[in-house]
Design a protein around this nucleic acid. Structure first.
Lengths: 191, 191
DNA sequence: ACGTCTGTTCAAGAAAATTTGAACAAACCG
DNA sequence: CGGTTTGTTCAAATTTTCTTGAACAGACGT
């Protein structure tokens, strides 16, 4: 009965007994996601879906988390774009239903592939740009200034090596291969 | 001459030739840091210091990046707390000088140890809490509702396993050991 | 075709964060 | 000491991000 009632938008006073547990888990995931650079609601919504044996509607979600329908629509749409949530339709129902993609590892790989890889590549390109500017400057300078530019060139190239290493690391992660930090450290030596 | 002049707060029009390169690199790192959840200025300041052969003063830094002295003080202080920048003093100088910690790997480890480890542990604890609430609820329910709670318990315990795995992963990273994603995936099975 | 039910988009309002100048404090010099 | 230089803290102001309600659009059943 309580299960069935939960399906309708039910008055705030008769929450299912497990609601508290649900919310705690959702909030924990929300904090993780927020820290990781996503909207906090994405983590919360995903968790509610992940904990539900049945696909849910936006109405149930906004009821559970006390969110406006537009907030749900926004974050849910983003989750769908990231492949973290799937739309499904139940026969005889007009509403959209949603279920969580439950393979978290797959999700992680996708995010790293689409987002982190980009990020690190852009940084790498920017360092390359910086190097070009330094090369230009070097040609016009001599003496102490040229020495200084040479120092900077070494440092920038080390930064670039770092991002390249990061790129490699993310690629390995995305490919599901083993990571060996020893490789990573090799890019660094003291001064 | 230009080198010496840069030491004083110099009028905006006579920038050293390498300034552009410096700024590009600094901005790239700023974006990385911001994405990683730090103040963007932390990345920029660190980079300027990292590219300088000599320790620098706050005045030089605020001049280079066009930041107010309070902004420099704030972000620089945070960098010092993270061990990413060191104060040094030059004989005969009253000002504080700063130099960048140049072992980036060491920095990464420190951040993961202090920040990410905490984060993941808190999430883990929250999931544990959620489990307790579910156990309580389970005792008071029967039939479909109990089944539903049991489903949720399985799922929450999978989330908890996930954060535990994350914790292990961060520990390995911090210890500089090899990471094997095969271990990580083991925590997951479809439904 | 019309009215109803769903979901999305948008712009205004609210909330949160960053930024800054000024006040304060501390160290140093003569 | 008194004055100067340097660094930090604070609260106000700005910017940015989030949130929401209302308008819009699409699909469906009658």
């Amino acid at each position: 009965m309580s299960t069935a009632a939960a399906k309708q938008q039910e008055p705030n006073d008769s929450q299912p007994l497990w609601r508290e547990a649900e919310l705690r888990a959702a909030d924990a995931m929300g904090r993780l996601m927020e820290f990781w650079g996503f909207r906090r609601h994405m983590g919360r919504l995903w968790t509610i879906l992940y904990l539900s044996p049945e696909p849910m509607t936006t109405a149930e979600l906004s009821d559970t988390l006390q969110l406006s329908s537009s907030a749900v629509s926004l974050s849910l749409g983003e989750l769908v774009r990231w492949g973290a949530v799937r739309k499904t339709w139940l026969p005889g129902e007009r509403k959209d239903f949603y279920r969580a993609e439950s393979n978290v590892w797959k999700l992680l790989r996708r995010v790293y592939e689409r987002r982190e890889l980009n990020l690190v590549r852009e940084a790498s390109d920017a360092f390359l740009d910086a190097q070009r500017f330094l090369d230009e400057a070097r040609d016009q300078l001599g003496g102490r200034d040229r020495e200084r530019v040479d120092y900077m060139r070494k440092r920038v190239s080390r930064l670039r090596a770092l991002t390249k290493t990061g790129e490699r690391l993310v690629r390995l992660l995305v490919a599901g291969r083993a990571l060996n930090p020893a490789d990573l450290q090799s890019a660094e030596e003291e001064d």
